[in-house]
Design a protein around this nucleic acid. Structure first.
Lengths: 127, 127
DNA sequence: CCGGATCCCAATAGATACTG
DNA sequence: CAGTATCTATTGGGATCCGG
């Protein structure tokens, strides 16, 4: 990922570290559940249980796990209302919104290529 | 994902099917290895072993598995040279290039937000 | 030799039950 | 209701073998 050639020079150490950090972040964020959660949140605010309904097929555990990660990365904000029963709301932060826009582009790409992919799969499976 | 409200009308059945298909495709494609492979391929052609070198940390097995999936989806082309030793080259197809452009946007987003994320992680971990 | 298939073991995800 | 813990099922990594 944008991995240029590094010389041994000391100022390249920063570049190398930034690059490996970028890879780490990308690896965490670029998984289907995280991206689907971000897409589901959109511009609004959703409760834990609402999110669970929106993100089709996600397990309780994966939802909490990914929400924690996204919160830790400062991409979603977690707001706990100390009521009974508890009410926890999740919202995308500004950086989260930025990521969401890129996810949206991917969703558009997916919809545009459903036909091609379906056809390709069929011919592939036939052989 | 773009999940509108569906009525029970028969023409909505197509929409619903397209939507679930889109989710399936998205779930397959939106995993870190597939996206990193696509990013690594870029506009060029790489051999299996070269790809293995480019995509840091990927296992032999995951590479073959994801390449198969991408080939099945018509996103990468697989070219086998019947030589000894064998030489297998992978290239992005036109739709694959389209996806690559969206991946690139995500990579850019990642690099732009390294600072914010790193800072956010630190404060999160401190509590 | 290179790319891929297979087997085994560790790691991760899902289901379910339990707590505040 | 939201989150944690536990147990089981599935998946991924690593070593090894095979076919060209």
């Amino acid at each position: 990922m944008v991995t240029k050639q590094f010389s041994g020079s000391p100022e390249d150490a920063d570049l190398r570290r930034a690059d490996s950090l970028a890879r780490e972040i990308f690896s965490d964020v670029a998984n289907k559940w995280a991206l689907l959660i971000i897409e589901a949140l959109g511009e609004g605010t959703l409760r834990f249980s609402e999110l669970r309904g929106e993100v089709e097929g996600i397990s309780h555990k994966m939802l909490t796990q990914n929400l924690r990660m996204l919160e830790r990365y400062g991409l979603v904000e977690r707001c706990v209302h100390p009521t009974v029963p508890p009410r926890v709301e999740y919202t995308l932060t500004e950086p989260g919104q930025g990521l969401r826009r890129t996810v949206h582009v991917m969703c558009d790409w997916t919809h545009e290529h459903i036909g091609h992919i379906e056809a390709s799969r069929r011919t592939f499976d036939a052989s």
